[in-house]
Amino acid sequence: MPSQQEKFAIFDPKKIFFQVLDFTGESMRGFCSTLRHPGKLRSRDFFYYFDLCGPKSLPIVLLIELLTGMILGLQAAIQLRKFGTELYVADTLGWSVFKEMGPLMVGIVATGRAGSAFAAELGTMKVNEELSALTTMGISYGRFLVAPKLLAMMLAMPLLTVFGDLAAVAGGGMIAMTFVDLPISVYNARLFEVLNPITFLLGIVKALVFGILITLAGCYMGIEADSDAQGVGRAATSAVVISILLIVLSDALMTQIFSYIGY
């Protein structure tokens, strides 16, 4: 038995590279085909995933972002107090929330909620031979399985980020009012002074990219899961780990690009 060779086959990076390429291509084709024929989108699936990623994630996003805003506000106030410049707590907070922490926290929540759910769902479908059935029915998993999730996430993530940003700014505002004794009007005025719509939009773009990466990572791990219960468990775990890695990497890249174009 060439079991040694078999093990190498499993960790073959070239094979994995082509699998990822294949999967991404198939998903993108499915997505484009859905955009071209929106009538063929399984709307019940879409709304299910949108509900899962959007409204159902909102409470936890609001809570986390509120607390994040408070933590950032507090840290900023402590540092700025050293220079007697607490007034700028809004600048520091707004800047970091809209550009980084807002989308990032939404990404983390979505990874835990949607990414792992996608991987578990597709992994289970693989175990039940549903994926094989889909293939032999001649139906593309990209269009049938990935596209509804991708669309739902691409809609839900920006919306969550808008609400999350507001929650974080509100949390920071609470700190500014209590800890720094900054009047709310001053806080708001500073916020509007430093932030412009582009900063805000670029944060949204980040969330959109995170949403795409989380969906693709979750679906890929599910499709490539080992066909047993433990395999599905591992797929859900890897989906989360890989999503977080991708989020941080893409964030670093986008921050570079955005700063290059002047934001």
């Binding site: 019940r44 479908m125 031979e129 549903e130 094989s132 059935a133 032999t136």
Partner: peptide, 14 residues
């Protein structure tokens, strides 16, 4: 052009 009946049915759960 061909049909496949899987051992466990392989029906789509949703």
């Amino acid at each position: 052009r061909f049909g496949v009946a899987y051992q466990g049915g392989a029906l789509f759960g949703s």
